[in-house]
Simulated assay, not measured.
Amino acid sequence: MKRTVHGIAGTLALCLVSAFFLSTMLAELSGNVETIVTVKRGILYGLALLIPSIAAAGGSGNFLARSRRGRIVDGKQRRMKFIAMNGLLVLVPCAFVLYRLASRGNFGPLFVGLQAAELMAGATNIYLLSKMMRDGFRLSGRLAPARASSRES
């Protein structure tokens, strides 16, 4: 059961962060103010699902890792801490401030700078969550282990 919860929560987190990133990029490229505001509002609402999914993935992952050790497990634990801190310190505050600025029509330098920071942090979390999924598949045996000559972390 814990494995199922972990897999679903991790997959949901990756899908949500990816959807937030993609919708932000498309809204910004459209240049339509209403679309940008709608996307920023949607991201705020989506946090109500993203935060618990990351918490569930982290909690269930810690539970599953109790009986396991090794490079892959240690890497997943380090990445999870970074993902959580990146989300709490960068992505969540940016989501609130960017929505507030967008809803006021303030697309000046502060908006642009925060948007850039949000996109970089989001891309980082997409990358890290993808690596977490890959390593989860390796631990479960659904994906072959990395070759010894590989330098992946």
Rank of each mutant, 00 (worst) to 15 (best):
M1F: 07
R3L: 10
R3T: 06
T4I: 13
T4S: 09
V5P: 01
G7A: 10
G7H: 10
A9F: 04
A9Y: 03
T11G: 15
L12A: 15
A13P: 07
L14K: 05
L16E: 09
V17L: 11
V17A: 09
S18N: 05
S18D: 00
S18F: 02
A19S: 14
F21T: 11
L22S: 11
L29M: 11
G31Y: 04
V33D: 14
V33C: 01
E34L: 09
E34P: 00
T35M: 13
T35C: 06
I36M: 11
I36Y: 00
T38G: 04
T38N: 10
G42L: 08
G42I: 09
I43V: 15
I43S: 00
I43P: 00
L44T: 05
A48P: 00
A48N: 11
L49I: 12
I51R: 07
I51V: 15
P52S: 11
P52G: 07
S53M: 08
A57D: 06
G58W: 03
G58S: 11
S60W: 02
S60K: 07
G61T: 07
N62Q: 15
N62H: 14
N62Y: 15
L64G: 03
R66A: 07
S67T: 14
R69K: 15
R69E: 12
R69M: 03
R71S: 14
I72Y: 02
I72E: 11
V73C: 06
V73H: 03
V73G: 04
V73Q: 05
G75A: 15
R78D: 14
R79K: 12
M80I: 05
I83M: 06
L88I: 10
L89S: 09
L89M: 14
L91Q: 14
L91K: 01
P93K: 09
P93I: 05
C94K: 05
V97K: 11
V97I: 14
Y99H: 14
A102R: 03
G105C: 10
N106Y: 09
N106L: 13
L110N: 01
L110R: 09
L110A: 11
L110V: 15
F111L: 06
F111P: 04
V112P: 00
V112L: 08
L114W: 05
Q115G: 15
A116K: 06
A117N: 10
E118L: 09
E118G: 06
L119C: 07
M120A: 15
M120W: 06
M120V: 13
G122E: 01
A123S: 13
N125E: 03
L128R: 02
S130N: 01
S130W: 03
K131G: 07
M132Y: 02
M133H: 08
M133K: 12
M133Y: 02
R134S: 09
R134A: 14
R134P: 00
D135R: 10
G136D: 06
F137R: 14
R138K: 14
L139E: 15
S140C: 05
G141T: 08
G141M: 09
R142S: 15
L143V: 05
L143P: 01
P145Q: 05
R147I: 01
R147E: 12
A148N: 10
S149A: 13
S149N: 04
E152P: 04
